[in-house]
Design a binder for these strands. Sequence first.
DNA 1: AACTCGGAGTTCATTAGTGG
DNA 2: CCACTAATGAACTCCGAGTT
Length: 233
Amino acid sequence: MSTLQQIAQTNPEWDLEMFVDIANDLLSQFLPPAETTRNRSSEAINARLVRYYTTQGGLDRPLRQGREARYIYRHLLQLLVVRRLLAQGYSMAAIKPITVEKDNSALEALLQGGVQLTVEAANPALAFLQSVQARTQPVSASAASALADPVQSPPLPSAPAANRRLAAPDASQATAKSAGEVSHWQRVEVLPGLEVQVRDDFVPPSTPQEQENLLQLIAQQLKPLFHARRSSP
DNA sequence: AACTCGGAGTTCATTAGTGG
DNA sequence: CCACTAATGAACTCCGAGTT
């Protein structure tokens, strides 16, 4: 299975059938597991669906080669973003301006960015919490760059709170928590001497890509600590 | 030029899932 | 039950390529 980066480097152009195949191949990397989604957007896509998204405005119109449609890398990114956000409970109306207005790098960031990046951008209350956290804690270089990512702002226009299909955390609850409610942490001992703490409002990764990003982030954060220990007598 | 063929797009109706 | 939305099927139109 090719990665997005590999595909991007080849500057590809596909007919509709190939485009659907490639997209289905990649879909599992960027979609939450089927059991965590409550609609049909976790299912494989087909040519009819691609045309449907195009007429809905979620995808740019394809290039034309004679009478045949030609799809390029940008169409692939748009399709994956549409499917992912649909799976997360966003409506087509909310997704449309994102896929149309964002450039390729922003769409890639949406697909590959960490779970916090995606979910909190969709939830103004959590975004507020994040901003408070940013003021009170130093952030790592990678986390800071993620926060500064253009994908994050402005927030998605019609977030799950407005879409009744998804039971997103209620904004009033989240803000109440920020006003002084006690946070609860769960402790998990990974190895003897190594413990991870998870706050109750932490949103877990929903895709393999996000899990990978999270693990990399953790490794990055631990690196200086381990390095300091090794170099100390 | 006229015709045929086939792919793409559009429209309408319908189904299915979900929440109020 | 109703309203809304995503998704699909069928029928149709449009348009470009190929053939005569």
